[in-house]
Amino acid sequence: MSEAQLKRSPFSLRILRSIGFIFFFLKELLISSVRVAVDVIKPTIVFQPGVIAFPLRASSDMEITLLANVISLTPGTLSLDVSEDRKTLYIHAMYAADPEAVREEIREGLEKRLLEAVR
């Protein structure tokens, strides 16, 4: 057994958190599609798009892939690229007037829940 395996949380806990994560993700997906719909239907353009660098805490291939996929399907964000050293994820955001707030939201909401479910 390697050290990483020993540090993992128990199996049953991970399963419960994964199920919770799936429902959280479905809710976010619904919100995101409705928000895109509102943006498209509004007669004038109100959003301020921008490209944001997001420092990754996820390290393994699977974690990064899952996080990038989930970011693409949640409100207002779309993952564009991972940097060469795999420490930064470049995100295209619909509302990027305050990049720090977008980073904070992803770090505290999605990434935290995803890592809790996987690790």
């Binding site: 301020q48 798009p49 921008g50 490209v51 944001i52 660098a53 930064t88 470049y90 990027a96 007037a97």
Partner: peptide, 14 residues
Amino acid sequence: PLCGKTCVDEWRKQ
């Protein structure tokens, strides 16, 4: 190109 409304591009900056 990104559209004219774009306010920040941290990829290009880095």
